Simulated assay, not measured.
Amino acid sequence: MKQYSVKVDAFEGPLDLLLHLINKYEVDIYDIPVSQITDQYLTFVHTMQELELDVASEYLVMAATLLAIKSKMLLPQKEEEIFEQDPEFEDDPRDELVQRLVEYRRFKEAANDLKEKESSRSLIYARPPVDTSEFTHEDSQTSIGDVTLYDMLAAFQKMSRRVKEKKPKRTRIQSEDVPIEDRMNAIRNQLRGSGKTRFSDLFSEEDRGHMIVTFLAVLELMKTRDVACEQDKNFGEIMIFEREGKASV
């Protein structure tokens, strides 16, 4: 299958992914269930690798760090006593990671505050008013929905598991490569007919190559603001909408 290089701006680094998982599963940042978070983190990284999203080395370094912390926390008591004799031994192997996450969260919140102030300041002009009515409609449609890239990856994971469960043990599938541009046009045409569709309904074929191209096509349509995605609740069905003003594209 043809290789596609897709740059996704929503990824801000491994700490951002960890913070997302902590918020998603509503766990205490000062008492992280390392085993659960590590498993979920590795699942996301593996999915990113399968989709060829060019996973940065820092994600893999964090994965190794999580596995090391998980191993230390699983050590028997006798082995822990040996580590306690080491002057560099930490009472809780999670402490350093927790400090990094708390600091990252603090800077992220500060960055969001600055971004809001920037947005407010951008509304102030030191010149006479001008007619902006022609831009009003487009400005009201700048949102692409409340769904994050992590939510999209989780939906793709669920879809992949469903296909694997339905797929026979032995199968031989022959399929032709589908250019991502063609798949984007097919999704546009599907939305023009109905206005909206469920994310799962886009995967009419169970060929893995076709599934990956479909997923990347949705990401590109979100990036170009041709579609908007919404999710009513965590782990719920993602709905994809055609954005107003894009029907003639």
Rank of each mutant, 00 (worst) to 15 (best):
K2F: 01
S5H: 08
L15Q: 13
L15W: 05
E26H: 14
D31Y: 12
I32T: 10
V34G: 00
S35Q: 11
D39M: 05
Q40Y: 09
Q49W: 03
L51V: 12
S57Q: 10
E58S: 12
A63P: 04
A63I: 02
P76Y: 08
K78C: 06
E88T: 00
F89G: 00
D92L: 06
R94V: 01
D95I: 09
E96M: 09
E96N: 08
V98Q: 11
Q99K: 12
E109V: 15
E109W: 04
N112S: 09
D113V: 13
L114P: 01
K115F: 03
E118H: 07
S120H: 09
A126Q: 08
A126L: 12
R127H: 08
P128L: 14
D131N: 14
F135S: 09
S140G: 15
Q141N: 14
Q141M: 07
T148M: 07
L153C: 07
L153D: 12
F156W: 07
K164F: 06
R170C: 05
R170L: 10
T171V: 11
R172T: 14
I173S: 12
E176Y: 05
D177F: 02
A186S: 09
N189W: 11
L191G: 01
R192M: 15
G193N: 12
R198C: 04
S200Y: 07
F203M: 07
E206T: 15
G209P: 03
M211E: 15
I212E: 01
T214E: 07
F215S: 03
V218M: 04
V218Y: 00
L221D: 03
T224Q: 13
R225P: 00
V227S: 10
Q231Y: 03
F235Q: 09
M239Y: 12
F241A: 01
R243Y: 05
R243M: 11
G245P: 02
